[in-house]
Design a binder for these strands. Structure first.
Lengths: 141, 141
DNA sequence: CTTGAACCTCTAGTCACTATAGAGAATACG
DNA sequence: CGTATTCTCTATAGTGACTAGAGGTTCAAG
């Protein structure tokens, strides 16, 4: 019925050091320990960790997840906070897609125009050296 | 003809500490100093820093930029290395766009289905808690 | 009982900066 | 020339979300 951190890692596909890290920053409660101080988990831990994992995959940051978890723990509250967090994340993602599309366009142009000759006439290098590019923060990746 | 680090920062829109950082990691050569040990730059520094800035905006990492700069410094080499670096970056960006599109779809579904009632029946929280989601690393943002 | 995989804590490293502190240098104005 | 303001200097630490490593302990199988 209860199992080790390695088993939890296997079942959730979250790495062992990451689980310990989540405990350290307070996303996971410290579980009971064996006499030898090894952590023992139950299926509630799987559910909570799966929640965290899924939220991370969707790009929510730790603070957002902390808020979402506390909502999950208090199901009588209004869900407007959850809604707001999700909408904010959606807006970020949409903005990001726009700038990555611009990025892709410029990279494609660069690559297509490269004649694979000498650097002296390379469009890749030339494009980078060209200072007439006004875009703000395109990348951040 | 020569100017301070603050002036270079203003002209390239790269922050002063970032310029010093680039010097520290060897992307920019240490410039001459005044008697009082303040850095003095010329227009070559503007060009090089603009190159770096543009490459960063396109999401090239420091190591890639180091390679691109060394190509720029030796224009007789083949440009196939530059081509390869740019293509690799393009591939990264395209992969990223694909996963962000999947992300956007899931977030939209979440947000649309949220009836803004109690958390107990909130689709946002429910979706996150649902462990039947097999996508690998979607986000990383 | 012995082996060896899995576990423990703690510290430091990743990336590309950004922030802060405390001190000295340069410039504008009166 | 004095002084006030702004700029610059170095050095160190912090960011987010982990990941890697050292060095030691515990557990379960055989």
């Amino acid at each position: 019925m209860d199992f080790s951190i390695g088993e939890l890692a296997r079942r959730t596909k979250v790495k062992v050091p990451t689980i310990r890290y989540y405990e350290q920053i307070g996303l996971l409660l410290p579980p009971p320990r064996t006499e030898g101080q090894q952590r023992r988990y139950d299926k509630n831990a799987i559910a909570r960790l799966a929640f965290i994992k899924h939220a991370r995959e969707l790009g929510f940051d730790i603070e957002a997840i902390r808020a979402l978890l506390s909502l999950q723990d208090n199901p009588d509250q209004s869900c407007s906070v959850a809604d707001r967090i999700a909408k904010a994340r959606l807006a970020e993602v949409e903005e990001r897609i726009v700038s990555l599309n611009a990025l892709r366009a410029e990279l494609r142009r660069m690559v297509e125009e490269c004649a694979s000759g000498r650097v002296a006439e390379c469009r890749v290098i030339e494009t980078l050296a060209d200072s007439s590019h006004g875009h703000g923060r395109l990348a951040e990746t």
